[in-house]
């Protein structure tokens, strides 16, 4: 999992403001999701593909990302194909929209470290409880994954049984109990340091021309809806 939290080295859009990338991705995904025809969607996918190509992301990385959504998107497309046969356009639309959104989300993830994403969400006035919870999730997920591994090794060294032979419920509950205890300790330490429920973030820098251009570029994906 450790690699999943890291942006891709060398991604071209890494220096852009996370607010511009979040809003651009959401707007672009919304536009793709609204595509009424295959022609419009085709234009959008070409444009999204061009942005990905300009990102310096490897084709392998992009394909791996697309592969993640394939089982679900293909299943939905298949259901739609059966329902609307012999008109397969709706089915292809669903597939294309799913992959188009994956391309945009991939750009965001590849170019933005998680702390920057969280700070961007905070600056976009997302509810504070969500921002702080997200920050904790990022900070402790890898630690808890290691804790799960340690618990597993301890269990194996004591019982020698394979994972299928033990009760999963108590094992999972034990992880929750440990997390709860850790949460109590962290909360006490944070309260002692004057934590008020909000994360301190530095003053927001003004968006630069490049930020506006990137967000506007993705929002232009709305154009094929009118001309496609």
């Amino acid at each position: 999992m450790s690699g999943a939290f890291s942006p891709v080295d060398g991604c071209r859009w890494a220096d852009l403001d996370s607010r511009a990338k979040i809003l651009g991705t959401m707007g672009g995904a919304l536009a793709i999701s609204a595509a009424p025809t295959l022609a419009a969607l085709g234009l959008q996918l070409v444009a999204a593909g061009a942005v990905v190509a300009g990102s310096r992301l490897s084709l392998r990385w992009v394909l791996q990302r697309c592969a993640l959504v394939t089982p679900f998107a293909a299943m939905m497309a298949a259901f739609l194909a059966f329902e609307r046969a012999p008109d397969y356009a709706p089915s292809l639309l669903v597939l294309g929209k799913a992959y188009g959104s994956v391309l945009l989300l991939g750009i965001l993830v590849a170019s933005t470290p998680v702390p920057e994403l969280v700070a961007g969400l905070q600056r976009l006035r997302v509810p504070a409880v969500l921002v702080v919870t997200a920050s904790f999730t990022y900070r402790y997920a890898q630690l808890l994954e290691q804790e799960w591994g340690r618990m597993d090794r301890a269990r194996l060294s004591r019982s020698g049984r394979t994972p299928r032979q033990v009760a999963w419920g108590p094992r999972l509950a034990a992880l929750f109990v440990r997390s709860w205890d850790r949460g109590e300790r962290v909360a006490a330490a944070m309260t002692a340091r004057g934590f008020t429920g909000r994360l301190p973030v530095g003053p927001a820098q003004a968006l630069r021309a490049g930020d506006y251009a990137f967000a506007a570029g993705l929002l232009l994906l709305v154009l094929p809806l009118f001309f496609g």
């Binding site: 702080v132 919870t133 997920a141 997390s179 850790r182 949460g183």
Partner: peptide, 16 residues
């Protein structure tokens, strides 16, 4: 405020 750390920790656990 003191509840948020616990919520974040359980969110991380749920993610794992």
């Amino acid at each position: 405020p003191w509840e948020v750390a616990r919520m974040g920790m359980l969110s991380a656990t749920s993610f794992v």
